[in-house]
């Protein structure tokens, strides 16, 4: 545990609190809507990704159904069901869709989870008050990787 913590600290740029290998939202490169490289420089954790589908800033099932998560009540129907998403899309495409779905699907209702610029009347989370400057992205780089790792397991 301790060793892990120390090595993590060594590879992190402490001044910004962002790991050295992390690609900041404004630097993400999209190719046909896909993003080839890990945003955090690390592999994703599918189990952690599964939790984000239900909770917090992810809350993907507000809009998407996932049969294998049918123990979670109230799955939304705004977007397509994500069953088989791991067959339909490559890992790079999934990363692009989660980071900024508006590149792959122009005008989509799906929020951009790893974008920090270009908002209109940006609020401070759900307070209804203005947010000065740019916000934190909805998901961190590692959370995006976790979600992508989870989505690749959705095969039929």
């Amino acid at each position: 545990m301790k060793i892990l913590a120390i090595s993590a600290a060594l590879t992190a740029v402490l001044a910004t609190g962002v790991a050295a290998d992390t690609v900041v939202p404004s630097d993400v490169v999209y190719e046909d809507g896909a993003v080839a490289m890990s945003l955090s420089g690390k592999a994703g954790d599918a189990a952690a990704g599964e939790k984000i589908m239900n909770k917090g800033a992810g809350n993907c099932i507000a809009c998407h159904q996932i049969t294998s998560l049918d123990y979670l009540a109230f799955q939304g129907e705004i977007g397509p069901a994500l069953d088989g998403a791991g067959d339909r899309w490559s890992e790079a495409e999934l990363r692009g869709i989660v980071a900024n779905a508006k590149v792959m699907f122009e005008g989509t209702m799906m929020p951009s989870f790893y974008r920090t610029e270009g908002f209109y009347r940006l609020g401070d989370a759900y307070t209804g008050k203005a947010h000065p400057g740019n916000p934190e992205p909805l998901l961190t780089a590692q959370q995006v990787e976790d979600v992508v790792a989870y989505l690749t397991t959705l095969t039929e």
Binding site: L122, G123, H131
Partner: peptide, 12 residues
Amino acid sequence: FKGCVRDTRAET
């Protein structure tokens, strides 16, 4: 209206 706008993480 205010509640709906707030739920988009916007300044209402």
